[in-house]
Design a protein around this nucleic acid. Structure first.
Lengths: 138, 138
DNA sequence: CAAAACCGTTGACAATGGTCCATGGTTTAT
DNA sequence: ATAAACCATGGACCATTGTCAACGGTTTTG
């Protein structure tokens, strides 16, 4: 499919797709049949873009995602510690997920407290504070 | 406490603290007693820094966090739709959390698959694809 | 067929979140 | 008392993640 269709399907801009492509996250081939220089993107590209979105939500950088995609595509690099890389990322993402979850709880508590007592009454929230959204460490 | 102590306690650089302060996320007062220009940070600043970390993990921008902190500090702004803001952020964070969770699942599946079949055998993972980490939409 | 919509490439621009450096003063440890 | 460690301020600098503009060609549509 052409870039415009993909962009619409995946809800990202054409420029973003090109940006990802420049960084090796997506690939396309020039349509040799039609002699225009147009590029054709594989069907699964839309799915790839979803994975990228999720990976970004998980806090991975473009560089990280590129590595991960490389492994998914079986670019077996020999002497690159995939398990190490994956373990590292799993740990990072888990930590980030915990933090995000904690913050979501705080947001929700704030909302309730603020709805209840429009002017004040946030002290409970403030006291509960940073911690305590199922915290384990500390 | 002084900036160095806070930095150590919260595991961020002094520069980062100053950066946050410039953006209104943290505040400090000049120590008037001691006539040096040194600044004193309140005890709860370390906790604030933890909240900031969590909020960032949840994908909020510094600007967003500033607004949120303002509300927590009861900077009641009148005619600012706090509930709307909170609802919006809760929705955003929830979505991000879902995406991150999905990606974490993918990471874990990849790890297992790759451990099992060092050379290939990623097709199962690839086929399961983007979706399917408890997805609701689509 | 003409206008509108699309495509490619290149390179500049921008916002975000920090980090680093220079300068000059203060405190603490030896 | 002197060096090492700390502090403040200001501004330059950096990577990341896109976005936009310009230019020229192609396809689609009315």
């Amino acid at each position: 499919m052409r870039i415009g269709e993909l962009a619409k399907k995946a809800q990202v801009s054409r420029d973003t797709i090109r940006f990802y492509e420049r960084h090796g996250l997506i690939r396309s081939d020039v349509d040799e049949a039609a002699g225009n220089g147009y590029r054709i993107y594989p069907e699964d590209a839309a799915m790839t873009l979803e994975v990228i979105r999720d990976a970004q939500a998980a806090g991975l950088s473009i560089a990280d995602i590129t590595v991960f995609m490389g492994q998914l595509a079986a670019q077996t690099d020999a002497d690159f510690d995939v398990q190490g890389f994956l373990d590292g990322k799993i740990a990072e993402v888990t930590a980030r997920l915990d933090g995000a979850q904690r913050f979501l709880t705080l947001l929700e508590r704030t909302k309730v407290a603020l709805a209840k007592a429009p002017q004040d009454g946030l002290d409970e929230v403030r006291k509960a504070g940073a911690g305590n959204g199922n915290r384990t460490r500390n």
